[in-house]
Simulated scan of single mutants.
Amino acid sequence: MRARVTTRVVRPKSVKASASDDPLYLQVARTLKTEIVGGRYPVGSHLPTESELCARFAVSHYTIREALRRLRDDRLVASRQGAGTIVVPRPKADAYAQDVVSINDLLEFATGARFAIESVDMVTIDGKLAARTGLAAGEEWLAVRGLRQREGALAPVCWTEYYINREFAALGKVLGRHVGPIFPLIEDLFGRSILEVHQEIGATVLSAALAKSLKVEAGTAALEVRRTYKSSDAEVAQVTINTHPASRFRHSMTMRRIKM
Rank of each mutant, 00 (worst) to 15 (best):
L107V: 07
F168I: 07
G84P: 08
R114A: 13
G82E: 00
G134K: 06
L171K: 09
D105P: 04
D73I: 08
T85E: 03
L76V: 09
Y163F: 12
R70Y: 02
G146V: 06
W141Y: 04
R80C: 03
P184N: 12
E161D: 13
L142T: 09
A58F: 05
A143D: 01
P156W: 01
M122I: 10
P181Y: 06
R177Y: 03
D99E: 13
L154P: 01
Y163G: 06
T124F: 00
L135D: 05
K173M: 10
F115V: 07
S102Y: 00
R166T: 12
Q98Y: 00
G180H: 07
W141H: 07
E151C: 08
G84V: 14
R70P: 01
A113Y: 02
P89C: 09
G152K: 08
R90C: 06
K92L: 12
F109G: 09
I86G: 02
R114K: 12
A97N: 02
T160N: 11
N165C: 11
V123P: 08
E139N: 14
H178A: 13
V87W: 00
E167A: 15
E118A: 14
A131T: 08
R148T: 03
C54K: 15
A153R: 11
T133C: 03
R177I: 05
L154D: 03
R166L: 08
A113I: 02
S79R: 13
L171E: 05
T111F: 04
I164A: 05
A67Y: 03
K173Q: 12
T133D: 00
A113D: 01
V59N: 04
R166H: 10
P91C: 07
E151G: 07
A130Q: 02
A130R: 06
R80V: 14
G176P: 07
G138Y: 00
Q98E: 05
H61A: 15
Y163H: 15
L142K: 07
R80L: 10
F109E: 01
K128G: 01
W141Q: 10
A97F: 04
G180S: 13
L147R: 04
R80G: 06
A95V: 13
D121V: 13
A170C: 08
I103F: 05
Y163S: 11
A169L: 03
D74F: 02
V120K: 05
L71G: 07
H178R: 14
G112N: 09
L175A: 12
L135N: 08
L171G: 13
I182L: 15
K92S: 14
S60R: 10
Q98P: 00
F183H: 15
A113R: 09
